[in-house]
Amino acid sequence: MLLTRAYEDRAQELWSKGLVVESLHGSQGQEAIGVGVCYGLRPDDVIIPSLRTRAAFLVRGVSVRQFLSGMLGKATGAAKGKATAHHMGSKDAGILLGSALVGSSIPVAAGAALAFKMRDEDRVSVCFFGDGATERGDFHEGLNLAGVMKLPAVFVIENNLYAEFTPISKHFAGTSLAARAEGYGFPGVTVDGNDVLAVYDAMSEAVARARAGEGPTLLECMTYRQRGHSSSHPPTEGRDPAEVESWLKRDPILLFKAELAHRGLLGGGALALIDASVAEEIEDAVRFAVDSPLPDPAELYRDVYAPAETSEAAR
């Protein structure tokens, strides 16, 4: 969580200086979800993060170097400079390619779960998306298909109360997004998305269900977007200051630090050590990304189709 937070803050600085060329969709305030969920998984499970699940990439093993290089549009970044880091895939890290169309990853994640079920593998497919994505037809189509087929999938809603600029009260007339799961024949669970241990516990239950062949779970994690929709927008413009204040008090990092202190696990300057290691990793990545080359223009024509020899061999 500290690494993700430091990453987001540093990336925002670099964006302000024009070094980060990707429009940032900050995850500050939502770090506990990606962390809690991914710690509930095995390395051979797969995930598709949302545009705001930065923590998931880092927990699953995508290096800060590669991720940041992608945001700078460098050849060492996502898809060798051809894709945004926000939706990058990584075969090694078990991260499937996402989509910039919110919600479109939901059927794709169901399809990965379908592959696991067909091959009788006890792997799980996880899809992260925001509250706004639950209004897409793909949410309905994907969850319905997963429910009917009892697929080993967990659908994680990062309910940060805003769909871009629109508050949830203006895009959802119901009282609970998790309750929608009932219509698809599987459980919907609401959890405090700023409590990393609560997320982990809820995720562990959902994963156990999926591995046991009992089908999907819809996990609604209540959280708050501490920044604007993207780096181009003022952080909390147009929102009730009391709302912002109350959520900042429930910042997931503050909560977890308090919990660790309560359990007596922060002795020996542990936090300072973590902070120092995080800072070192981030600054190393900044140097790496800045020094990395831009893509060769010829890169544009690669990976549109399989190399010709592959196609021929396949026939």
């Binding site: 059927p107 794709v108 399809g111 990965a112 592959a115 298909l145």
Partner: peptide, 12 residues
Amino acid sequence: AIVGAAVGAAMM
């Protein structure tokens, strides 16, 4: 969802 699920299964 049919085509989207095919994409996910194909990637796997």
